[in-house]
Design a protein around this nucleic acid. Sequence first.
RNA 1: UGGGAUGUAGUGUAAGGGUAACACAGCAGUUUCUGGUACUGCAUUUAGGGGUUCGAAUCCCUUCAUCCCAGCCA
Length: 560
Amino acid sequence: MNTDEKKNKHFIEKIIEDDLANGRVPGGEIVTRFPPEPNGYLHLGHAKSIILNFSLAEQYGGRCHLRLDDTNPEKEDMEYINAIQSDIRWLGFDWGDHLYHASDYYQQLYEIAVSLIKENKAYVDSLTPEQMKEYRGTLTQPGKNSPDRDRSIEENLRLFEEMKEGKHPEGSYLLRAKLDMASPNLNLRDPALYRIKFAHHPRTGDTWCIYPMYDYTHPISDAIEGVTHSICTLEFEDHRPAYDWATSIDHIDHTPHQYEFARLNINYTVMSKRKLLFLVKNKLVDGWDDPRMPTLVGVRRRGYSPEALNMFIARVGVAKVESVVDFALLEFCVREDLNKRAKRVMAVLKPLKVTVTNYPEGETELIEVENNPEDPGAGTRKIPFSRTLYIEQEDFMEVPMKGYRRLFPGNEVRFKGAYYLTAQEVVQDEEGHVIEVLCTYDPESRGGTTPDERKVRGTIHWVSAAHAVEATVRLYDKLFLTENPGERTGNYLDDINHDSLVTLTECKVEPSLVQSTPGEYLQFMRNGYFTLDTSDSSPESLVFNRTVTLKDSWTRKKGQ
RNA sequence: UGGGAUGUAGUGUAAGGGUAACACAGCAGUUUCUGGUACUGCAUUUAGGGGUUCGAAUCCCUUCAUCCCAGCCA
């Protein structure tokens, strides 16, 4: 492998290429795996791991397994097992026949445990959890051996068998590896291998009442499946010696290796399943798929595309430095992708009535507009224009501020795709609010240009009042107000953005939108990207979610 | 004060002894039937200190900072 080929590769790619080049990969096929615990929904952090593992396998012609790490029946659920699979498929990956569960290996794991006991490498301990803690020592002090450490092999075998048969209550006994209670690495101080749990397992039901621990199950599962590169996050670095111990015992004839990378953090959000579960359970959000959630189901409902997510993860990179990625990068990737594919439509969120005084009453004409200027192949559609229209309240100012290019008295602007209109006068309610703008139009400007080629500074969107469809539009913003929720007070809930959802009703959208389908990517012209909500929308009552705003240099300038 | 890791523009990530770069964010401008897109330009970087070397982000020493580990969770 010459060094040129290593350029711009991340460290895991370099390791793999090195292993491949030096014949360290059995059969030359690299095998990775994504091993989620089915105790919650997948989030953006998992997306990084999924994309890393699956694309590495793709890139080097290997395979990637999906393995549900279901060793703790108390927290795990069939609902999650199913959701995980659909999320990974949505992201664009396929594990083929390689769907596994740690629970598939329970029998084998048990038999290996029995062998370890016979080899005097594991023992049954009767220390209480409190005693365990005491005996473990601290970060700076070594632990001490449990009095049970020297129990005879026969006794250990008998006890373990009884544990398995359910003869002992939870917490009474534990199977532990006999490693080193004085190790500076706490994970090596006789780690627990099996605990007793009388819990119903989503897949194995009540077959077992002893369940294997992560440090024992995970490496052996990897070995059984022939995983070559077992990629996990940084906090497992300390567990690598335990991983290496488990994969080097007899009864295992394949040696996978563990590599650790930095998990994905994004500012203005939280990414722990515990916190996300809390938000869901306490109804701080609408569920795991609330569009403000960083879950895959959430961002999907919000209108993010899997392509945008893949682009995002690619740009974030893979390294060992703990880092926090800007939410702005995610939004950039979403816009980048949606700009190319979203169908442009007219939608007025906060309507202001406009009457075209010199346009014939009762007449309607159809204006042809392009569906996507970035994609000529997207074609055109026709939208109705008439005497009474709605425009955005923000697109009219009775007294224009400096730099304002939209509609104001005496100013001529283009109504996108239709005509040039000039504001003549306003109609106010008794409180002095402008409730209607009276305009005149230039019949020669049809289509948005004039024979004399005169320029207008502004182009605004509009809908025809008589043809518009009413819709509800949900404007989503960041769920948290601060970059690092909880940093200031210690409680992330203190930083929740209570204005993260603004619901607008009586929005006016162009009639073609009644045919919109969930999953369709839309751009509300000059406003943002939107998509039909998957659960609350119906043809009679449209509900759109804002995916992300358009970049807006005007409100920024205005605000300064 | 044990062990494991990590420090490159504001944020991510490259550069593996030879001119510190790319993207996002920021700022300024050009184009435009979206104040979008596209395009152009500007500003800002090797944690500190020593050393080796003609030459150091890169090698050595040292200091500092940050993160992870004391579940019968994963």
